[in-house]
């Protein structure tokens, strides 16, 4: 039972990161109508910027996270402007290729600056806590709480503010949005900023637990992609639930069977869901 609870906890922690990253990916999908394959690399850069600010600029952990979040928001805007906006109105494959170009560029850039080897962000909260027999670190709790807070705020922004409503409006009917006077370009920029910034926060809080490497973005991006498909493309609550489900599947599969196979469980789940429910777990069956 203890092992089970421990793995559930680990699953929720993993899932927290996945949920935030996938929510950002699905948000951008709604606007672009193609997945941004470079999203995982925003996540990776977010971790590196925080690493740089903490180790070289000697900033405190939270100021570093905040600044990293702003840097990534800006990077998101720049990438949308340079790599995606020119592809609008062209065949979707062009945007795909553009995204892959961005991904390769970002990974090469980080490798050039910080080298291919792993780095570690000093853990700001290493103390262990005992939660009703469950032993964990403060940092791990922090990952869960931060993700929950981010998801809550993101939801609040989209559902309760007019600016948030414009993102949904553009996703649901681009021409309709233009006709009510929404500047679609501006909404695209904001969506990219939001998506990259949330990925940066998710990466920064989880990074002290793991090692950061230039290739970490590829796997996270791939998993976010799985989750977004699991949850139904463009479906934000679907992406969040999908994130937690994937985290739990990986942790339980890894804990009970073998940790070496945890990615096999993730991709196995994708194949299973696509075979049984092609529109995703939370997607509407389209005729």
């Amino acid at each position: 039972m203890d092992v089970f609870l421990q793995q559930v906890f680990n699953g929720i922690m993993l899932g927290s990161t996945y949920a935030v990253v996938a929510a950002g990916l699905t948000l951008v999908f709604g606007i672009l109508h193609v997945p941004n394959f470079a999203h995982g690399h925003f996540y990776m850069i977010g971790a590196y910027v925080t690493f740089f600010l903490v180790t070289s600029w000697k900033l405190g952990f939270w100021p570093a996270v905040l600044l990293s979040c702003l840097v990534l928001a800006l990077l998101g805007v720049v990438v949308e402007r340079l790599a995606f906006r020119p592809m609008r109105g062209q065949p979707q494959v062009n945007a795909f290729i553009s995204a892959i170009g961005v991904l390769m560029f970002l990974e090469a850039l980080v490798t050039l600056v910080w080298g291919p080897e792993g780095h570690r962000i000093p853990n700001p909260y290493p103390a262990t806590v005992n939660l009703w027999g469950l032993v964990t670190t403060q940092q791990r709790l922090l990952v869960i709480v931060t993700a929950a807070l981010l998801i809550f705020l993101l939801n609040l922004f989209i559902k309760k503010t007019l600016l948030g409503a414009t993102i949904e409006a553009v996703a649901q009917n681009r021409e309709g949005a233009m006709l009510v006077g929404i500047n679609v370009d501006r909404v695209s920029s904001i969506t990219f900023a939001l998506s990259a910034a949330t990925a940066a926060i998710a990466a920064s809080v989880v990074a002290p637990i793991f090692i950061i490497t230039p290739t970490m973005g590829a796997l996270v991006g791939m998993k976010a992609f799985i989750i977004v498909i699991l949850g139904g493309l463009g479906n934000i609550p679907g992406a969040i639930w999908g994130g937690y489900i994937l985290g739990l599947v990986e942790a339980l599969g890894g804990g009970y069977i073998s940790a070496d196979y945890k990615d096999v469980f993730a991709f196995g789940l994708l194949i299973l869901v696509l075979a049984l429910r092609p529109a995703g777990l939370f997607g509407k069956e389209s005729s």
Binding site: Q172, N173, E175, G176, L179
Partner: peptide, 13 residues
């Protein structure tokens, strides 16, 4: 302002 053919509403809102 144009009220377009096909309405172009935001269906899930």
């Amino acid at each position: 302002v144009l009220c377009p053919e096909g309405r172009q509403l935001f269906p899930q809102l």
